[in-house]
């Protein structure tokens, strides 16, 4: 009923926009990574011709990720931070999502609203709030001193690993709970009743039915927060600011803004993207498999 050309024409402006400002910029990263650096001004001299690309910087950077080399420590730290923050978020977030989806009755809408609220409170505002609380004279230390749990106030914001991990959890957990909640809500309640009916205790029903059925949701929610966490550099800066707690994102930031080494920064960006693409691919394959299993 519509002319054939209509829909492509509708899509063209948006697609062109995404090509020019999403794909081409990515090509710019590659061009800078495989290009050279102006010896005097130290700015990038990108190389747009794939035939004359210079792979040296990328290879050197890649070699830096080998155990014991320049980026090994920072890479390891990033992975450990993300893994711990993710685990912490799941351990804290799953029970919350589970409770809201399964048990909250009269309070369900209120709780969902309260869970969604931090979603729309700017990340920077939440970090500011966090920093206010954990500052040397903040409420957390006041409380610890008052209870005599500590004698000298601990320095939370001066390069403390725990602070960065807690900061990451605090920053990203809302993005985990919501998709988890949606996934848990999709599980048919009667399936759980069937498990109880067939002799499964509440714990057994959880481990044999709820958990397996929410596996795709857990994976999806984990990917949703793991990807941006790997690219985070502002959280460690805000809650620590120390070189002891830098993540891979900080390293990229430094190569562009600190001592400008754009081709190294671009190489690191490429490596990070490739790493995340592998993660994403793993996720998509797992989900496709899980869907196939359920559907047969």
């Amino acid at each position: 009923m519509y002319p054939k050309w209509l829909w492509p024409v509708f899509a063209v402006p948006g697609v062109v926009w995404l090509i020019l400002l999403f794909l081409v910029p990515f090509y710019a990263v590659i061009g800078v990574a495989f290009g050279g650096v102006d010896p005097i001004f130290l700015n990038a001299v990108p190389n747009w011709n794939p035939l004359s690309w210079n792979y040296d910087v990328l290879l050197t950077t890649l070699a830096g990720f080998l155990p014991g080399n320049q980026y090994w420590g920072i890479f390891l730290r990033t992975v450990v931070y993300v893994a711990l923050a993710l685990t912490g978020s799941l351990l804290f977030g799953y029970p919350v999502a589970y409770y809201i989806s399964r048990h909250a009755r009269r309070t369900k809408m209120l709780l969902i609203a309260l869970i969604v609220l931090p979603f729309w409170v700017s990340y920077m505002m939440r970090m500011l709030a966090w920093v206010n609380l954990f500052s040397p004279s903040g409420f957390v230390n006041k409380f610890l001193l008052w209870t005599n749990l500590v004698q000298t106030p601990p320095d939370w914001l001066g390069g403390n690993h725990a602070s960065v991990i807690l900061g990451l959890i605090y920053g990203y957990i809302p993005y985990l709970i919501l998709p988890l909640l949606a996934a848990l809500d999709r599980i048919d309640r009667s399936v759980l009743e069937a498990a109880r009916d067939l002799g499964a205790s509440p714990a057994s029903a959880f481990f044999h039915v709820t958990l397996p059925l929410s596996k795709p949701g857990i994976l999806g929610a984990s990917v949703i927060i793991a990807l941006p966490m790997f690219g985070d550099y502002y959280t460690p800066t805000i809650v620590s600011g120390s070189p002891r707690t830098t993540m891979i994102g900080n390293q990229i930031d430094i190569f562009f803004h600190g001592g400008p080494q754009p081709s190294v920064g671009a190489s690191l960006t490429m490596i990070l993207s490739a790493f995340l693409a592998v993660l994403m691919a793993y996720y998509m394959i797992t989900i496709a498999k899980a869907q196939k299993e359920v559907a047969g």
């Binding site: 048919d188 009667s190 399936v191 009743e193 069937a194 498990a195 109880r196 009916d197 067939l198 002799g199 499964a200 205790s201 509440p202 057994s204 029903a205 039915v209 397996p212 059925l213 299993e293 359920v294």
Partner: peptide, 20 residues
């Protein structure tokens, strides 16, 4: 008595078969 300890079983309206 909680449901899992009752000697009673149910056939659900939507069957509630475990999809996994």
């Amino acid at each position: 008595t909680p449901p899992h300890k009752r000697h009673v079983n149910t056939v659900f309206q939507s069957y509630a078969l475990f999809p996994h």
